[in-house]
Computed example of a mutant assay.
Amino acid sequence: MGLRKRQRMIVVVLALALVGAAAALVLTAMQDKIAFFVSPADIASGTVERGRDFRLGGLVVEGSIERASDGSVAFTLTDGAGDVRVLYAGILPDLFREGQGIVAQGRLEEDGRFRAREVLAKHDETYMPPEVADALKRSGHWQEGAEKLR
């Protein structure tokens, strides 16, 4: 093998190694910042890891909202196939209400309740986050005609 070919091969291998190392560092640094989406049915099936941040989406169950004197709120979130009790201490979005599609970000506690750090409500009557819509479709609670609204 010629000297020039060997030098090119060494440069290519070193470049690939550097790119791989940089990608590994970025993914390691972002590991705690990445939040996966799960549905209440996923939690009910027991496949969700406790103590790790993720997004939970579904519909707020009618009659499940309980407000405490300290300003915190508890409510139940469903996708039709499973229910999860959500605890949140903070200001809820103006559009938050029963029957509303929401996405909450937080962690699943050992007792099975979800402690939310952030609660997001859909921004108008026709929009639903794609993850929530997909979970509702899987559980059979999807309203026909809403698919074109995403």
Rank of each mutant, 00 (worst) to 15 (best):
residue 145 G to S: 08
residue 40 P to I: 04
residue 4 R to W: 06
residue 47 T to K: 12
residue 36 F to V: 07
residue 83 D to N: 09
residue 103 V to D: 00
residue 62 E to K: 15
residue 7 Q to W: 06
residue 135 A to T: 05
residue 89 A to F: 06
residue 3 L to T: 11
residue 40 P to W: 12
residue 137 K to Y: 03
residue 14 L to V: 09
residue 50 R to S: 08
residue 118 E to F: 04
residue 53 D to Y: 11
residue 90 G to K: 05
residue 54 F to L: 12
residue 40 P to C: 04
residue 77 L to D: 10
residue 58 G to R: 14
residue 83 D to W: 00
residue 14 L to F: 09
residue 145 G to E: 15
residue 71 G to Q: 15
residue 80 G to R: 10
residue 35 A to C: 01
residue 15 A to D: 03
residue 91 I to V: 13
residue 47 T to C: 08
residue 18 L to S: 05
residue 140 G to S: 15
residue 101 G to S: 10
residue 106 G to N: 01
residue 81 A to T: 08
residue 48 V to P: 00
residue 54 F to H: 05
residue 117 R to H: 00
residue 20 G to H: 02
residue 10 I to Y: 13
residue 37 F to E: 05
residue 87 L to D: 14
residue 134 D to G: 09
residue 83 D to Y: 01
residue 102 I to A: 03
residue 17 A to R: 08
residue 23 A to E: 10
residue 132 V to W: 09
residue 95 L to V: 09
residue 6 R to P: 13
residue 139 S to Y: 15
residue 35 A to R: 07
residue 18 L to H: 09
residue 112 G to Q: 00
residue 52 R to F: 13
residue 106 G to E: 02
residue 80 G to Y: 11
residue 103 V to I: 03
residue 143 Q to R: 13
residue 24 A to E: 05
residue 125 E to F: 08
residue 4 R to T: 13
residue 10 I to N: 03
residue 113 R to C: 08
residue 28 T to V: 02
residue 135 A to L: 06
residue 124 D to M: 04
residue 89 A to Q: 05
residue 21 A to Y: 06
residue 98 E to C: 10
residue 38 V to H: 00
residue 29 A to I: 04
residue 121 A to N: 04
residue 24 A to T: 11
residue 17 A to Y: 14
residue 11 V to D: 04
residue 130 P to H: 11
residue 101 G to V: 02
residue 146 A to K: 12
residue 14 L to A: 10
residue 145 G to L: 15
residue 139 S to W: 07
residue 91 I to G: 00
residue 99 G to A: 10
residue 58 G to T: 02
residue 3 L to G: 13
residue 64 S to R: 15
residue 46 G to L: 07
residue 48 V to D: 00
residue 36 F to W: 11
residue 64 S to K: 05
residue 41 A to D: 10
residue 37 F to A: 10
residue 19 V to P: 08
residue 85 R to M: 01
residue 47 T to E: 11
residue 32 D to T: 03
residue 119 V to Y: 01
residue 120 L to R: 11
residue 109 E to T: 01
residue 67 R to F: 10
residue 130 P to T: 14
residue 147 E to F: 15
residue 7 Q to F: 07
residue 125 E to M: 07
residue 92 L to F: 11
residue 73 V to Q: 12
residue 24 A to C: 04
residue 26 V to C: 12
residue 4 R to C: 13
residue 17 A to D: 02
residue 128 M to G: 03
residue 126 T to P: 06
residue 44 A to T: 01
residue 60 V to T: 09
residue 123 H to Y: 02
residue 100 Q to Y: 03
residue 51 G to W: 12
residue 9 M to G: 15
residue 106 G to R: 01
residue 26 V to H: 10
residue 101 G to W: 00
residue 117 R to W: 07
residue 77 L to M: 12
residue 127 Y to D: 02
residue 89 A to W: 04
residue 3 L to N: 06
residue 141 H to P: 12
residue 29 A to Y: 09
residue 5 K to P: 09
residue 53 D to Q: 13
residue 26 V to N: 05
residue 128 M to P: 08
residue 95 L to Q: 13
residue 63 G to M: 03
residue 31 Q to E: 01
residue 92 L to H: 01
residue 124 D to N: 07
residue 30 M to N: 02
residue 43 I to Q: 09
residue 72 S to G: 06
residue 148 K to T: 11
residue 10 I to T: 02
residue 82 G to L: 15
residue 101 G to F: 01
residue 114 F to N: 09
residue 126 T to D: 14
residue 42 D to I: 05
residue 88 Y to G: 14
residue 60 V to N: 12
residue 11 V to L: 14
residue 59 L to P: 12
residue 1 M to N: 15
residue 22 A to I: 04
